[in-house]
């Protein structure tokens, strides 16, 4: 394990922000931290990154690198009066990382930022700022990347692009990535493992697909001709070209097969996660 957080607790006045939370990360895997606003995600990340001291518990980092962890907390932060290149050069210089033009250009390219933008970062879109934040977090090649709500404020294209970037970083650089979000769909597409936080407590943890399967009561199937189909014993609610069907993971597979045999064209099939199950029960 590169990073282990054991029994982490933090209290702010009367508010128990974190309550005996355990977290551990291996290299090359992507972890999702799911929780509503105020669940304690940012507090946990601040503790992992050493910005806040926990009241109890400890963080163990198993890495010999100069900078074992990199991250973004809340919104990405950079010096908005400097350009992306100047920011990277500045952050590189203070931690002894290479800051020559070629290295900086490589860093910019690795996160998909253009090399010919010399204007201040304040002119950047949120997506570009996120990329810059990741580039800064990746300076000195950390073994673990902590990203707090990186998709917040991004449009669908931006989200898609960032998802691909994070996947590439994890697989190409074999780093561990922890991503937080309050939107389960984003994490479902990205993460190998999911940790579910509620009111400062870890209520669920496991392989992402296992958790999703266990918490899914119904699926939304979209396609042509579905509204005229005889759904038989399935509970189905029709809305335009989509139908919400009550079924479990095994059942939905059979249903899709039937629909396909009937010649119906299926454009998508999305699980509808039961939030109460997700945040209330423990599933591994």
């Amino acid at each position: 394990m590169i990073l282990t957080g054991h029994a982490l607790s933090k209290q702010y006045g009367d508010l128990q922000a974190l309550d005996h939370v355990d977290v551990s990360c291996e290299s090359g895997r992507i972890y999702g931290l799911l929780g509503a606003n105020g669940a304690g995600k940012t507090t946990l990340f601040r503790i992992l990154l050493g910005l806040t001291k926990p009241d109890h518990g400890q963080v163990i980092i198993n890495s010999k690198r100069k900078k074992p962890l990199g991250g973004i907390i809340e919104k990405p932060a950079a010096y908005d009066y400097l350009s992306a290149r100047q920011n990277l050069r500045l952050f590189s210089s203070v931690q002894g990382a290479p800051k020559d033009d070629n290295t900086i250009s490589e860093r910019l390219e690795s996160v998909g930022l253009p090399l010919d933008r010399h204007d201040p970062v304040r002119n950047f879109s949120m997506g570009m700022k996120q990329r810059l934040g990741i580039a800064i977090a990746m300076l000195n090649d950390p073994e673990c990347l902590v990203l707090d709500e990186p998709f917040s404020g991004l449009d669908p294209l931006g989200i898609d692009s960032l998802l691909r970037l994070i996947r590439n970083l994890a697989f190409e650089h074999s780093i561990s990535v922890i991503v937080s979000s309050h939107i389960v769909d984003q994490l479902a597409r990205l993460c190998d493992e999911l940790l579910v936080l509620r009111s400062g407590k870890l209520v669920n943890r496991g392989i992402t697909q296992n958790i999703i399967v266990a918490c899914t009561d119904s699926y939304t199937i979209c396609g042509s001709g579905l509204s005229n189909y005889d759904w038989g014993n399935y509970e189905a609610s029709i809305a335009g070209q989509c139908v919400t069907v009550t079924a479990d993971a095994e059942g939905i597979g059979e249903l899709i097969e039937q629909l396909t045999k009937q010649g119906l064209r299926i454009s998508s099939c999305s699980p509808n996660i039961n939030m109460s199950k997700l945040f209330d029960s423990k599933l591994v």
Binding site: K66, G71, I73, K75, A77, A78, D80, N140
Partner: peptide, 13 residues
């Protein structure tokens, strides 16, 4: 205010 302080403190300094 700009949270660059947090960003800096995440670097090995």
């Amino acid at each position: 205010k700009e949270r660059t302080l947090q960003m800096m403190m995440q670097q090995p300094i």
